[in-house]
Simulated scan of single mutants.
Amino acid sequence: MNRLRSLLFDAFFYIGSVPIVLMAPVAAMFGTRPLHGVVRAWLGWHRWCSRAIMGIRVRVEGQPLHGPALYVAKHQSFFETFELTLQLGDPVVVMKRELADIPVWGWAAKRYGLIPVDRTASAAALRQMIRAARAAREDGRPVLIFAEGTRVDPGQMPPLGSGFAGLHKALGLPTVPVALDSARVWPRHGPKRPGTVTFRFGAPLPSDMDRKAVEAAAHAGINALEPPSPASVE
């Protein structure tokens, strides 16, 4: 049954996405406001398909801040890239460069404000990311980064990428860690299944925290919903 639901979701979501995605470059030519409207429509379509077809609900603990902030989130599935963007309201999202290189769509994505970053984390790439994030701050938009760099399975808690600490220092904004457990219903492999995804917004971390302290606090915050290791239980 879950496999059938997953197939139906893929069919409805991706077929329905085609006209929306094709509209994005056209909307981008008329400014950011029309483009943001198209993006919100796409995010809303994803939420509707997730709820109506897959039976996936969302529970939010805590809440985003009012005004610009840096959000650092756990990354377990495709699901939170859509859902968090919808919850935060037109954030700038740090994403892998390969997506920005897609012809036409990549141009519209950068026009929206997405920040492409090279996974090699070169000094030039980090400086470009920081410049783009500062521009987003000046526009009053939040910044979202999945600082683990890639999707991870439940229980995996890799260190945060170096770009996170650089953003925290450069932006001078409070940093909000976001824990989530989307892989329970949206695994990397195999069919999706009904259930509830929890998003937990942690306490804001002050902008003046030093690198080591903010990395440790953010790492603990995004992993707050991870099951304890056997060693910690004993």
Rank of each mutant, 00 (worst) to 15 (best):
A109S: 12
A123M: 14
V178Y: 08
R141Y: 14
V117Y: 11
Q128I: 10
L160Q: 01
L180M: 13
R111A: 14
R184M: 08
H168L: 01
G106V: 03
Q156P: 10
G195T: 08
K110G: 15
L173N: 02
A108G: 07
I145P: 07
G202Q: 05
I145G: 00
A136S: 10
R127L: 10
R127S: 08
W186S: 04
A203E: 13
R137N: 00
V143T: 14
A109W: 02
D101A: 15
A183G: 00
G140D: 05
R141N: 13
P204L: 09
T198M: 11
K169R: 14
P191L: 11
V117A: 04
E138T: 14
T175N: 11
T196D: 08
L173E: 11
P142S: 11
A147D: 02
V104S: 00
R131M: 13
G155T: 05
M157W: 11
P159R: 02
R141T: 12
A170R: 11
A125N: 04
A133F: 09
T175G: 01
L167C: 06
V185A: 06
R131I: 11
R184P: 10
T196G: 00
I130N: 05
R200M: 04
V176T: 05
T198L: 10
W107H: 05
P154A: 13
A179C: 08
A124Q: 15
L160Y: 12
P159M: 10
P142A: 12
P191Y: 07
R151C: 01
A147N: 04
A136M: 05
S182I: 06
I115K: 04
